[in-house]
Amino acid sequence: MHGPHSADLSSSTQNLPRRDVLKMAGAGLAVLTLVPFEASATPESTLAAIKKLIGSKAPKQSRIKINLLDIAENGSTVPMTVHVESPMSEADYVKSVHLFADGNPLPDIGSFNLGPHNGKAQISVRIRLAKTQHIVAVAEMSNGETFIARRKIKITIGGCGG
């Protein structure tokens, strides 16, 4: 470390990329406990996660709706509901719904495989969110079409640990 004064340390790390700061933190236990996350997902890494699940299709922005609070005081349990407009018949149904959070340490929330036996393409879960961010929901239909919705949520207290 650079000196006994904490002020010195903070000024010396100010211009470093976050990754280097974290490497330094490996040496200093006190800093490590202050930085609970290695990195956070970004809208780009969320897109990559979506691509991994649905391939390179371009989802349309319709038919899927996210029901979510605008502001949540506590990010550790945030209720949300996703609804996809679909007849849910044998010929036309929602195959799966994928949920993502673009500001969490890991963007994936979950994947839910449905079928005509579900009758209604709607699922409710409780999620945890580290900070203010966007929730992304992607639906895959039985005919290969994909739909996407994005919604912002403000978090007062993060909920991923630390």
């Binding site: 963007p107 994947s111 009758g119 709607q122």
Partner: peptide, 28 residues
Amino acid sequence: YNGKEVLDAVWQPGLSANPYMAFFLVAE
């Protein structure tokens, strides 16, 4: 449901502790 799979969910760390999940089914 009656031996037939009606929901298959992959859960990730983004779900909260004490996970809650609700979904719909058609009565057969």
